[in-house]
């Protein structure tokens, strides 16, 4: 761990390093990773953007809920049963004709797990993290999200404890859709702010 243990590229295959660390911890009785298989299963399969989509659809059909969501997102999201690590201090930012919101974590990979699941690779990648704060309009357009010139883009760098969810504008001409159907229109990317519905 001292300076003498710094190793230059290249190194051993990552799979071998995982196996070595796992087996060492098990043999030393420090921890058994399989004890939390259910947690991994939960984040891999049971949590994801479908949770956030329910929050958004509820906010579209229930004005009182929307107001609660904007005033205290953590509590309003918990009303629908979503809470936990990386979601303890939620803020919802609302898109309007004048404002488009987008979220980034320039220092690492902070992301609202309870409503969006684990982040995609591009969200954690150097191009996204470096460029989203410096040239958001250019980057969004490259990603297929063209924001009207008169609409301000507000970028939110989640550098502390708050995790953000974007509340997209409800698409026009879907007045007769049920809340469930509306939730089906909401995408992960729209809730990060790299897409518009």
């Amino acid at each position: 761990m001292g300076e003498g243990h710094h190793h230059p590229l290249p190194t051993t295959p990552v799979e071998d390093r995982v196996a070595a660390l796992e087996s060492l911890l098990v043999d030393k009785g420090i921890l058994d990773p399989t004890a939390i298989d259910a947690v991994v299963e939960h984040y891999e399969h049971a949590v994801g953007p479908m949770n956030g989509a329910k929050v958004v659809a509820r906010a579209w059909v229930d004005e009182a809920y929307r107001e609660r969501l904007l005033a205290d997102a953590t509590a309003a999201i918990a009303e629908l049963g979503f809470s936990g690590p990386e979601g303890d201090h939620m803020v919802v930012v609302q898109n309007t004709p004048e404002v488009h919101n987008a979220v980034v974590c320039t220092l690492c990979s902070c992301y609202p797990w309870p409503v969006l699941g684990l982040p995609p690779n591009w969200y954690k990648s150097p191009p996204y993290r470096s460029r989203m704060v410096r040239e958001p309009r250019v980057l969004l357009a490259e990603m297929g999200c063209v924001v009207p010139e008169e609409c301000e883009i507000r970028v939110w760098d989640s550098s502390a404890e708050v995790r953000y969810l974007v509340l997209p504008m409800r698409p026009a001409a879907c007045d007769d859709l049920s809340e469930d159907k509306l939730a089906g229109l909401v995408t992960r990317d729209a809730m990060i702010g790299v897409a518009r519905l």
Binding site: E44, T106, G117, L118, W122, P127, V133, R134, L139, M143
Partner: peptide, 23 residues
């Protein structure tokens, strides 16, 4: 190196469609 905000030169964001949670 983690303090990436505003650094230039990284190029396009590569989006993987239907990306699995773990690759």
């Amino acid at each position: 190196i983690h303090d990436l905000g505003g650094i230039q030169g990284f190029g396009p964001v590569e989006v993987e469609h239907d990306e699995p949670v773990f690759h």
